[in-house]
Design a protein around this nucleic acid. Structure first.
Ligand SMILES: NC(=O)c1ccc[n+]([C@@H]2O[C@H](COP(=O)([O-])OP(=O)(O)OC[C@H]3O[C@@H](n4cnc5c(N)ncnc54)[C@H](O)[C@@H]3O)[C@@H](O)[C@H]2O)c1
Ligand SMILES: NC(=O)c1ccc[n+]([C@@H]2O[C@H](COP(=O)([O-])OP(=O)(O)OC[C@H]3O[C@@H](n4cnc5c(N)ncnc54)[C@H](O)[C@@H]3O)[C@@H](O)[C@H]2O)c1
Lengths: 215, 215
DNA sequence: ACGAGCTTGTGACTGAAATCACAAACTCAA
DNA sequence: TTGAGTTTGTGATTTCAGTCACAAGCTCGT
């Protein structure tokens, strides 16, 4: 989040430095947290002045591993896979979708976002050729476990999973999930809660009016 | 996560009950946490037996507000918006994409996933007509703030934002973000870290061999 | 050179989330 | 009915992230 705020700032404003206070506002967190977080990277601020934007950008970029390019494999070239494959926002931050895989013969061979979809069986050689280090799973949930295993087997130890299913991997593999249904469920939970409270308050109000003794 | 694990279980296996231990394994958390979490819903388990899967499913569904239908507005019908609009997984869990909005005249009027794309200016009336209660933003980052404000203005208080930008709303609005670049950055951070450790260990090993005294 | 005015870096503190651990409550076999 | 074997529900405890608060350190005007 800091990285993004700093990039925005570097683009739009001409400022050289930024204070923890300002960065906190932009990132939507507490200023002390900004300072503590940044202190883990080292002492890159100057008291009485703030942080040098360019320098901080470089340090965060370096720490996140974004100074190098991360060739990424995408498995499952359906609706979501296509959107991801043709998304330019990733390459801006050093993530290059470098190879596409599917198992459907109708999909294999197609050109998507400048790449040819290959069969999942070719994953292993592609990992060796292209140095793929990250895998994205956009298959149906039932195929997610298999896709993860093929990735791990091919040597990919970092996986982002879009399929709404639990995928088990060995502990040395880093797997993260993006689950849109869960996000919506969290929203509906709070929405229902506030609706329920509003309804209760309304019912209460009516009851009070009804039973209020005449003045 | 429990909901999903339970749904999987109800489909595949014929079991009637599930223990906190088993559910913990499936959801990837601690068993005591499962019990404490579920205890917030009420005492729905039986000691010595476990939880009735169907009953627990119903209770969680109810608590999350999934017994009712949540008509959802989708703003920004580009690559990602189209994938979301035609995704069937949402409606399975009670989220129905009920209206699509954009500002591009080439896009407005198009049929996507059985719906006609409307102009963003029609949002307010559509919220009233269709009872929209959740909004999804899939516009470019620069338009996200505007889209959020229009949603709030129209009465939508629950927002899911896919655009990688900070959106500020009043505190009574619930906004969540899904940021894929950040997910990938987290992966690359750990990937680089393990690579660095492996490299250091390797360098160390070579050094040790070189300087090891002859036996 | 000095003091007023900022802003960082971090030890101390706070509160919440996660975990432990065990009595209570159940099943089932004998 | 009893007792062994499970598993829940939850108070007690631990762990951890977030915040506070302030000394240390910087700039700049005088
Ligand atoms: N489309 C969305 O907006 C959306 C939103 C949230 C979550 N998801 C999830 O993302 C995943 C993909 O969604 P989608 O809409 O693109 O689905 P989709 O059906 O359009 O595409 C799935 C693709 O995966 C391929 N596939 C199937 N089995 C495979 C295997 N074993 N190995 C490799 N590829 C395989 C299919 O051939 C197909 O091309 C699903 O799990 C879905 O639940 C999608
Ligand atoms: N495509 C992906 O895979 C992907 C992945 C991660 C994040 N995102 C993010 O999701 C968002 C959408 O991505 P995309 O690839 O679909 O972009 P896109 O450019 O394909 O689509 C954006 C759509 O938003 C519309 N739009 C522009 N201004 C608008 C406004 N003020 N109000 C309403 N609609 C407006 C455009 O007309 C267009 O149809 C972007 O913020 C992007 O960064 C996309």
């Amino acid at each position: 989040m800091y990285l993004r705020s700093l990039l925005d700032m570097a683009e739009t404003r001409g400022a050289i430095t930024v204070s923890s206070d300002e960065l906190a506002r932009l990132a939507g967190v507490n200023a002390a947290k900004v300072r503590k977080d940044l202190s883990y990277l080292g002492s890159y601020g100057t008291r009485g002045v703030g942080y040098d934007i360019e320098y901080l950008l470089y340090q965060i970029t370096r720490e996140l591993g974004l100074t190098q390019d991360w060739p990424t494999a995408l498995i499952g070239i359906g609706n979501l896979g296509r959107a991801l494959a043709s998304y330019k926002g990733f390459s801006e931050r050093g993530f290059r979708i470098a190879a596409l895989f599917d198992v459907d013969d109708d999909v294999i061979g197609q050109q998507v976002g400048g790449l040819t979809v290959r069969h999942l069986d070719e994953l292993k050689e592609s990992v060796n050729e292209d140095g793929l280090s990250i895998g994205i799973i956009a298959t149906p949930p039932s195929a997610a476990q298999e896709a993860a295993e093929k990735l791990v087997d091919a040597g990919v130890k970092s996986i982002l999973n879009f399929a709404p299913s639990v995928v088990n991997v060995s502990p040395d593999v880093n797997i993260r999930k993006v689950d849109l249904s869960i996000e919506l469920q969290i929203l509906s939970f709070y929405e229902q809660r506030t609706q329920a409270i509003a309804a209760a308050r309304e019912a209460n109000r009516r009851l009070e009016i009804k039973h209020r003794p005449p003045r």
